[in-house]
Design a protein around this nucleic acid. Structure first.
Lengths: 220, 220
DNA sequence: CTATAATCGGAACGTCCATTCCGCTCGCGC
DNA sequence: GCGCGAGCGGAATGGACGTTCCGATTATAG
């Protein structure tokens, strides 16, 4: 009881080897299970697929929320890579559009992502800078396409995010019934984002910061 | 045990007056509760708002599923009215678009509808002809707008349904954070449905029958 | 090889819900 | 009015799930 008030001690001794291995197994199983079944899947199923007991799952990830976030973190990282690769490309318009086709496929393959992307306002651990980076990359992707005249000027990043989070949810509830149908929808949305004779949009374009603020306020 | 094999007897005696009244109260409360909180809301909350006990709720609607469907039925009916009114209008394009603005507002106001519209493939009772009528009306709405050159020809009813069910879900999970943002998305989707320099869509247009078949198959 | 403590498995617990049951109430036909 | 059975409220039941606990196991330091 006479120790310093540091919670996460810095000089943590390294985990026992089996513990480290199990942690990885659990994480991989969770990614698989949540992607297939969604966040609703029982924690016990994750344990089963990892070949460990529930107790082990819960020791490594004290709450389900934390486990989900660990999985999301991996996915956001992979997404950030894609977004940054798209930003490297010399052709802003196609880069923008192909990124969103890829994103949609990714969401369809990973149900968790589809379910939580819109809601991940409140990642408890580890992710604020990741989320910020992803938001920034996606914002720049839009802006670059707009500067190139490939996306209409009256669009905000929040518009794009909402449209694709919607499509992802629709996909998640029914299962990716017909990938082709989903891709048609992606194409239609992208057409709507193009500058050709757009209708007048109500309201002002929003960025992610404004969107997050709105979501947080709504939560109370 | 020696009675005829009729489940729902035809010669049902009329309900006692208080029972009939309670049934209505429960239905109204359910509509309110599920619209606000989604289908996840506890049945007990419905009872509380109706001013009756859970027992009463469950006697009138033996399972939650049945209660949800009763609520959905009311909403589908109201939606069918809107769709048919839109079909009466002389201006197919604006009629089409305004119908979908209205639909989106309606979905935003009624979370159940947003959550279940895509999934309502399997209404157990009472609704097949209602759903069929709604599908038909929505299909004709699309076709009429296409004939008038106001919606691109390579669109199927399933495309429109999926896009709007997606938007509805996105709205449901975060709450209708910013109605204006949602309406912007409606406008963007509708722009994507217009004939102005559309991109080539992958796959073939689907109608509702094909979509339903796919969903049913996926369920197994 | 042994002692020790980290880690494990999975049974037990608590919570949240839908659904069921049952003693009491009260609308309705006489 | 009166009696009785349809209906009522809400406690009890049962199942699903997240989390906790503890005796058994096993990696590791010495």
């Amino acid at each position: 009881m006479a120790e310093v008030a540091e919670g996460p001690v810095l000089a943590e001794r390294p985990m026992r080897s089996d513990a480290r291995r199990n942690r990885e197994l659990v994480l991989a199983a969770a990614e698989e299970v949540f992607s297939e079944l969604g966040v609703g899947a029982p924690v016990e199923e994750v344990g089963r697929r990892a070949g460990v007991g529930v107790g082990t799952v819960c020791r490594h990830f004290p709450t389900k929320q934390l486990l989900v976030e660990a999985v999301l973190k991996a996915m956001f990282t992979s997404l950030l890579d894609d977004a940054q690769a798209a930003l490297e490309r010399p052709d802003p318009g196609p880069a923008f559009r192909e990124f969103y086709f890829t994103l949609s496929d990714f969401q369809a393959r990973h149900r968790v992502l589809a379910e939580q992307m819109a809601t991940a306002v409140d990642m408890q651990i580890a992710a604020p800078e990741l989320k910020a980076a992803l938001h920034e990359a996606m914002t720049r992707l839009v802006e670059r396409a707009q500067d190139a005249g490939e996306v209409r000027a009256d669009i905000g990043p929040a518009d794009v995010a909402m449209l694709f989070s919607g499509l992802a949810h629709a996909t998640a509830v029914t299962g990716d019934v017909q990938p082709a149908l989903r891709r048609r929808c992606v194409a239609i949305i992208l057409d709507g984002l193009r500058p050709a004779q757009p209708s007048e949009l109500p309201g002002k374009p929003l960025d992610f910061a404004q969107l997050d603020r709105l979501k947080k306020r709504a939560k109370r």
